[in-house]
């Protein structure tokens, strides 16, 4: 890492002419990235790589272990709970990506307009982002109280929508979507901020030109704003996908994966296997599959979305 610097150091004042030589190395020296690499290597790469090793063992988390080859991966293929969790994880991710970004976009358009309360509303919509996800889950359990006159059901009743009352977290076919709604509430402000940034980046001239051309608000959005929001969309979709696939805190604190296995996700399975059931080796196999999965999905996404950006 220091060769670059050693090369550079003789080019001190006395050798001024050498400096004038066109340099093919205007890029910063390796020393710039060295601390980051060192820290990242020690805290993330090295431990994760050694963690991977356990995926091929029967380690319980305490005491001795022995190598079991690919047995953990084989069990994973036959583990109905893990496969169900995979399905739930995908459904949850799709719901979060679509709804969170959809709402985030609408909120961004709203608070980007010339309304008087826009600064206050930006803070309001962003506020849930700063609250700890576990606490958000505790809080939402009060909101999701199934009693007809409490929490969200109470509000629905009060505004004459009593027929929409639900057993939010208890109905196995609804629980996953209730968790998704909770996550969307917490993170829509995050998406909003990113879209807002995209909107601020679109020059006024472009939109005014479109207005003069007689384009209505819908057309303006469709043909001017939306294409120019492509980079913001890319980041939003990517971050919410990764967040959705790795989701743990909110699910675990809200339902622990229940009722039954209705809201079990890959992360809750991997947590339970490692620290509740004492099958650390197996859980590492789940973690590895999860990591590969997330990597593959994000790679495909980024390719597709970047290609879309380039078209605009």
């Amino acid at each position: 890492m220091s060769t670059q610097v050693l090369e550079a150091s003789p080019t001190a004042p006395p050798e001024r002419p050498a400096r004038r030589r066109p340099r093919n190395r205007l890029g910063p020296p390796w020393l710039f990235v060295a601390p980051a690499l060192l820290c990242y290597g020690a805290i993330v790469l090295y431990p994760s790589a050694s963690g991977v090793l356990y995926a091929f063992t029967d380690w319980s988390g305490l005491g001795d272990w022995s190598f079991v080859g690919l047995r953990n991966f084989d069990s994973l293929l036959h583990d109905d709970r893990a496969l169900g969790a995979l399905r739930n994880t995908l459904l949850l991710t799709v719901a979060i990506v679509v709804v969170q970004n959809g709402i985030g976009l609408l909120l961004a358009l709203g608070v980007h307009a010339r309304i008087k309360s826009r600064m206050l509303l930006r803070a309001v919509f962003f506020a849930p982002v700063v609250v700890s996800p576990v606490m958000v889950a505790f809080l939402w359990k009060y909101v999701y109280n199934p009693a007809p006159n409490a929490g969200l059901n109470g509000v629905l009743g009060a505004v004459g929508l009593g027929s929409l009352r639900q057993d939010w977290l208890g109905d196995p076919s609804l629980a996953l979507w209730s968790v998704a709604a909770m996550v969307v509430w917490q993170h829509a402000g995050y998406s909003m901020v990113i879209f807002l940034a995209g909107l601020e980046g679109i020059s006024k001239d472009v939109r005014e030109a479109a207005t003069i051309d007689g384009a209505g608000p819908v057309k303006r959005f469709r043909y001017v704003t939306w294409p120019l929001l492509a980079p913001a969309t890319t980041i939003n979709v990517m971050l919410s996908t990764i967040g959705g696939l790795k989701i743990f805190d909110q699910v675990f604190a809200a339902t622990s994966g229940g009722p039954g296995y209705a809201t079990e996700t890959l992360s809750t399975v991997l947590y339970k296997e490692a620290f509740v059931f004492g099958r650390y080796g197996y859980s590492t196999a789940v973690a590895l599959v999860l990591a590969l999965f997330v990597a593959a999905v994000s790679l495909v996404q980024i390719r597709y979305l970047r290609a879309r950006e380039d078209q605009t």
Binding site: A36, P47, S48, G51, Y271, T284, A287, V294
Partner: peptide, 18 residues
């Protein structure tokens, strides 16, 4: 890309070794 890999790794993977 190596750095971005860190975003997708579940933290549980390296928790015990770390």
């Amino acid at each position: 890309i190596l750095f971005l890999l860190g975003i997708v790794l579940p933290f549980q993977l390296g928790m015990i070794p770390l």
